[in-house]
Design a protein around this nucleic acid. Sequence first.
RNA 1: GCGCCUGUAGCUCAGCUGGAUAGAGCAACGGACUUCUAAUCCGUAGGUCGGGGGUUCGACUCCCUCCAGGCGUACCA
Length: 555
Amino acid sequence: MKLKLKEIILNAAKKAHENGALPSSEFPGVEIEEPKVESHGDLSTNIAMISAAIQKLPPRKIAEAIINHLEDPENIIEKTDIAGPGFINFFITMSSWYPVLRKIHTEDTSYGASDIGKGEKIQVEFVSANPTGPLHVGHGRGAAVGDSVARLLSFCGYNVQKEYYVNDSGRQIRTLGLSVFSRYRELHGEDVDFPADCYQGEYIYGFARTLMEEKKHDLQDKNEDDAIIYCARFAAKNILDGIATDLDRFGISFDNWYSEQTLYESGKVDAVIEDLKKRDIIYEKDGALWFRTSDYGDEKDRVVVRQNGLKTYFASDIAYHQDKFDRGFKRIIDVWGADHHGYIPRIEASIAASGRKRDRFNVILVQLVNLLRDGEPVAMSTRSGEFETLSDVINEVGADAARFIFLTRHYESPLDFDLELAKKKSNDNPVYYVQYVHARISSIMRKAEQEKQIKDVAWSDPAVSMLKAPEEAQLIRALARYPEVLQVSAKHLEPHRITFYLMNLASLFHSYYNKHKVLTEDSLLTQGRLYLVVAVKKVIRNGLTLLGVSAPEKM
RNA sequence: GCGCCUGUAGCUCAGCUGGAUAGAGCAACGGACUUCUAAUCCGUAGGUCGGGGGUUCGACUCCCUCCAGGCGUACCA
C-alpha cells in the first residue's frame, strides 16, 4: 500500500513539474508513514516539506500542486488533506485494504516473510555459557533474544546458523575440575580446605557423589593433575548435557556446538598467532605476546600469550572469529551479556586486522536481568551458589511467559523479572493478553462449526465488503503493517518490536471483540468477520512463533 | 579518570533512526458478564521527555556540556 501510494505521489510530482507548477524535478527523501492520530488519515507524506528548499516554494503550495496532479486509476484514495506545516494526508478507501486479508490467508504461515536477506549466510552465536554451572536467568534472556533474532532473520530471507560456543578449555574448566575433586576428597573423609575461588554450588557435590559411586577411591590414587582433569571433563560434559536439556525445554535448539578445545587441537590458534606475528600485528614485550589492538581503535594493546606461555581467552577468540568468516558467513552476530562490552573493541580490532569490514560483525549486548520475587531482589552468583537457575524459572512460570517477558524490553535496557508477576494469569502479564486472542478466535471457530456448520473461511467479495466498521478498518491496517514491522525488527536486530506489535494488535482485537459480535444472524456479515478474525489469528500465531511462544487453541 | 549503556506519567516501559496535540500497561477513580472465554472491554485522571546550550521549517530522536544510576576498565574467562 505504501509503495503504491509513493508511486502515485511521485508521478503526480513529476506531472506537476512537467506542467510547470513546480520548478524542480528532484524529490529526494520522500517518505510515507502512518500518522499517529486518526484524523490525519491512513497514510501521509512529507514530500512538500522536504522539497521546500529545492523548489523554493512554501510547502503548502507544493502540496497543492501535487494534489492537483494526482492520478488514481485503482481508486485507492478516498480523499486528501493538507495539514500542519505541509503534510499531505491520504485517506485510503476501505475496499483497497481488503486484499491484505486474502494475502494473509493465502500466504498463511509465511505471511510477513521477505527476502531482504537474499540468502546471505549469517551466523548468530548466543548463550555460549561456560560449562561450569547451570544456566541462570541472565542466560535465559540472551537465549530468548538470540533465538528470536535468528528466527526473525531466517524469516526475512537470511540463511541463518545458530551456534553455541563451548568454552571447554582454559582456567575455568580446571577450576571446575578442582572444585569437583575437592568435594570428592571431602566425601571420602579427607580434611580438605575448599579453595575460595572454586565453585561453591550444591551441584558440585552431585558430581562428586556420582564419581565416588562410580570410581570409589580410584581418583585419589591417581596423580592429582590427572584426577582434576578427569573430574573436569566429567563435570563439563554433564553440565553441558544439562544446559542442552534446559534450552530444549526453553524451545531452543542449536545448529552447531563449537568447541574451543578443537580450535587448539586443530592448530588454528597457533596458526593465527604465527600469521599475525609475521605481519607484525603481534609483537613480543616483557616476555609476553601482544596484539596491536590500539592500532585498530582499542584503548591499549592486549596480551595474547602470557609470560608463563599460556594463551589468553582472547587468543582463541581471535581464531574463533576468524574461523567463522572462513566458514563462509558474510555476517556474524554475537549475543553477549552487557558486562562484556569492554571486550568488543578487541574483537573488532582482530577482525579489522584480518582485513575485513567491521560492520560484518555485530554484537547484541543484552543488559542484566534483576530477578525479583514480590518486588524483592533474588541474589545471583555462580560462585556463591545462590542463584535462581533458568530451569527453576521455567518450572515456576513456564517457558512461554519467560520468553515473552524477556522480549518485552529493548535488550539494551535492564530488565526486572518478577517471578510472582510472571505467574499471574491476569492483564499484568502480557503473554496471556496476546495468547488469549488466539484462544478466543479458536473458540469462535469452534462455535461457528457447532452452531452454524461453518468449518472454514473463504474469500468472497460480498462477504468481505461487509467489513465497514472503524474497528475493522483499524484491525486490517494493523495486519497490513506486519511485514514492515518484521523488516524493521530484522534490520535493527530488535525482536521486542514484534512483541509490542503483537500487544497492540491484541488490544485492537479485544476492543473489537467486545464491541462487535462475529457470529451474527446475517450470514454474509458473519462470513466476512470470520475471514477477518482468522486472519488476525494467523498473524498472532506467526508473530508468537518468531518469539518462540506457543499459540494455544484453548486457555 | 576514561569507555559503554540507561534516564520519558506515581511504577514498568514503547516511541518505526528528524515529523503534526509525546503513547501503552500497572496502580487510582467510575462503569460493562441471562450475549462468540471478564485471562476482556469502555471512560476519567496523570508529563518543563534528567538540566542547560546548539543544529533547522520542525528535536524524546542529531551535536556539545553538565547531573544521576548501572556496567566495564586483567598477562580472568
